Amino acid sequence: MEDFYRGFAQRARDLAEKADPFTRRRLLDLAQRYDLKSRPGSGGDPLPRATPAALFFRVRQA
Rank of each mutant, 00 (worst) to 15 (best):
F57H: 15
M1Q: 08
A12R: 14
Q32S: 13
A62T: 07
Y5T: 00
L27H: 08
R6P: 01
F22T: 09
D14T: 12
A19N: 08
V59G: 07
Q32F: 07
T23K: 15
A12T: 04
E17D: 09
G44M: 03
R33G: 09
F8G: 03
D14N: 14
F57Y: 13
D29Q: 12
Q61A: 10
Q10R: 11
A50Y: 04
E17H: 10
E2T: 04
L47Y: 09
L36T: 12
R39D: 00
P48C: 04
Y34V: 01
M1E: 11
G7S: 14
P52E: 13
L47V: 11
L28H: 02
D29I: 04
R13M: 07
L55P: 01
L55S: 08
R13A: 03
Y34Q: 12
A62E: 13
Q10F: 03
G7D: 10
A9D: 04
R60F: 13
F56L: 15
T51F: 10
D35K: 01
G44A: 05
R6Y: 00
G41L: 00
G7M: 06
A50F: 05
R25G: 06
K37F: 01
E2M: 05
D29H: 10
E17N: 11
F4S: 09
L55K: 13
P46Q: 07
S42G: 01
L27I: 06
R26P: 01
G41F: 00
D14E: 14
P21L: 01
A16L: 08
A16Y: 05
R25H: 08
D3K: 09
A50E: 14
R25M: 08
R58C: 02
Q61T: 10
A53P: 02
F8I: 06
R11T: 07
A62Q: 11
A53I: 14
D45F: 03
L55Q: 13
L30Y: 13
L30C: 07
R49A: 14
S42R: 01
F22W: 05
T23E: 06
R49K: 13
S42I: 00
Q32P: 00
Q10V: 03
T23P: 00
F4M: 12
L28W: 03
G44D: 08
Y34T: 00
F56K: 15
A31V: 04
D29N: 15
D3E: 13
L55C: 03
F57R: 15
A53D: 11
L47R: 10
Y34H: 11
D20C: 05
A54D: 07
Q61M: 05
R25T: 11
S38C: 05
L47P: 01
P46I: 03
R33A: 12
R60I: 09
E17R: 15
A53Y: 04
F8Q: 14
G43F: 00
F4A: 12
D29V: 06
D45C: 02
S42H: 00
D35F: 02
R24A: 13
P40L: 02
R49W: 05
Q10H: 06
R26I: 08
A19M: 09
L30E: 09
Y5F: 14
